[in-house]
Design a protein around this nucleic acid. Structure first.
Lengths: 334, 334
DNA sequence: CTGTTAGCGCATTCAG
DNA sequence: CTGAATGCGCTAACAG
């Protein structure tokens, strides 16, 4: 059995000040604005910190200073590999400056997303990072009203709530279609997740092709198993298929495995293109043609923009289009 | 250019109370302890909340109530796929009860881990979730002194700081060795990450085999590219290799790809076993033999244990060994 | 069921 | 360079 523990109350700045023989505020300054305090006093205070085992209470400090040094970060789900580099670099960049990330998962559900945004605002974060755009109007207004820096990402619009770092999925879809057209492939299919951004790419892909092509939708987040399933379903409706665009590299991998399993040679008989340039894409056999996106850079830039704004700086380019590039590898070279 | 925004100050509970014509505390209770307030008053307060656009300030509430409803969660890096199901379920379970997770990345660095733990404690979280055990003695004491529920995970010891949900990597290593021995393979090699838990498995693997075997270490986190590199290095030092244990399924996949590339048939000429039962492991060709671990369950259970303790409940089983199982698939069937 | 009082731990005034 | 007073927004404790 494990019982609740009732430890002695943690030391407060008050205890430190008493131990050091200085006033509360001097202790406070010694720790957070040392330039205002004599070296001697700083030394005494630091010693008192050691002696008492003091750790500051950032909640209390934040209440008065209105700076929580907390940044909210919302993504659909941690299991979506695409966003990991973004959140990894975002979290790292924040940590080095003493900020921490509060994580929220919206599960691709707009209602949950709105509840989550409200819950986050209630924590008075100094900023908020959103994967995707906020479409819900009342959530947009709440965020605007909160008056904190907000970075939307992984998508594009000229009118973000506040700031944006991303790229256009419409352009991605069109570029992939252009690539497919340049190859002269005739029997094209699509295996795609059903989330908003994948839909944008898919629609642009088809409208650039100038026609509808056989398409299989799978629930996001799409994985290897979904990719295998998708190819089976695609072949059932389009037996002569010779090229597939997949909404993620995980799906693409599933499609490739399923093809090989069925004795269909990739790329000779079936060309496959993914999206996201996942870690493994370059190292499989065949290596996967995909769309490279600067996921880590998104997190880095967003962290910088949010923190700069927290320092009161102006942001020269509040809307950044990082673009993308098609990375041709073996899965489409024949 | 994007300038700092200066919005009208957000509504406080004070504003709500005035709008509703009740006292501050009544408004507070109407929102957080409705059973103590008449339905009529609740209705008036809720209306006032709508009218003012009020969102509670959980920082302020937490300061007084000593309940931040914040849980700290520390992992080596978000890019380590193994821990994703754990953090996904942890975050979800917490969110449904109004708790949020503060994320920290320790980068497999003990010094960073300690700084991170201190930074987290400064936020006065109601609980802390650790991936792995806390080995640093001063960090252990800090955590014990903080008096909050702490769950260590993804490893095993009889003497955790507070609570534990995990399994023994020593037993895993021994079990894999037993599996390899039962197969009668003679020319065994190891491709492993250099992190603490992978080391434990590797040592137990070799000591159960009763001898040292050719081993290639790669820096954690290990990925597909590292797996390919590892097999090349292994073959250089052990040309007759016929079975490899890999410390992750990503590594295993890399080993398999590299083998196929070199014309080595898996499993006929080279048996490959991974660890973690990643999503893709079952769906590749060949499917990957691996060690299944209840990653999502770890997060779920940990969330429950932490939240129960926050409610003052006793935890019947503060140390839970979830075990593991070897999942034999095609990559070792010959 | 409702209200009054007090204070969580700290940082921001203002004053020496 | 140091200090005293004040209050951030909210809830616990006690009273009606």
């Amino acid at each position: 059995m494990s019982a609740p523990r009732h430890p002695s109350k943690p030391a407060t700045l008050h205890d430190v000040a008493r131990e050091a023989g200085v006033s509360l505020i001097t202790a406070s300054r010694a720790l957070s604005k040392p330039s205002l305090v004599s070296d001697q006093t700083i030394a005494r205070v630091k010693q008192a910190v050691e002696a008492t085992g003091y750790l500051p209470n950032l909640l209390a400090g934040g209440l008065k200073s209105r700076r929580s040094r907390l940044i909210a970060g919302i993504l659909p789900a941690l299991s979506v590999a695409q966003f990991l580099p973004t959140f990894q670099s975002l979290t790292s960049a924040l940590e080095t400056e003493g900020y921490q990330l509060i994580l929220g998962q919206s599960s691709y559900d707009p209602a949950r997303e709105e509840r989550l945004i409200n819950a986050m605002i209630s924590r008075r974060p100094d900023g908020l990072f959103m994967t995707g755009l906020v479409h819900n109007e009342s959530a947009r207004q709440r965020l605007a009203a909160a008056g904190i820096p907000v970075v939307e990402s992984w998508d594009f619009t000229d009118r973000p709530i506040d700031m944006l770092v991303g790229f256009s999925h419409v352009k991605v879809g069109a570029a992939i279609a252009g690539f497919f057209l340049s190859k002269g492939w005739k029997h094209i299919g699509v295996a795609t997740g059903d989330d908003h951004r994948a839909r944008l790419r898919c629609e642009a892909f088809q409208s650039t092709l100038g026609r509808e092509v056989p398409t299989v939708w799978v629930p996001a987040p799409s994985g290897v198993a979904r990719g295998r399933e998708a190819l089976r379903r695609l072949l059932a409706i389009a037996p002569g298929l010779d090229a597939v665009y997949c909404s993620s590299d995980q799906m693409a991998q599933g499609v490739i495995v399923e093809a090989q399993q069925q004795g269909i040679r990739v790329p000779e008989q079936l060309a496959v293109c993914g999206f996201g340039d996942a870690e493994h894409a370059a190292h499989l056999s065949p290596s996967i043609t995909t769309v490279g996106v600067e996921g880590a850079r998104i997190g880095e830039l967003a962290a910088q923009m949010i923190m700069d704004r927290c320092e009161g700086k102006q942001i020269d380019r509040p809307v950044v289009d990082l673009g993308f590039r098609i990375i041709e590898r073996d899965s489409t070279r024949r």
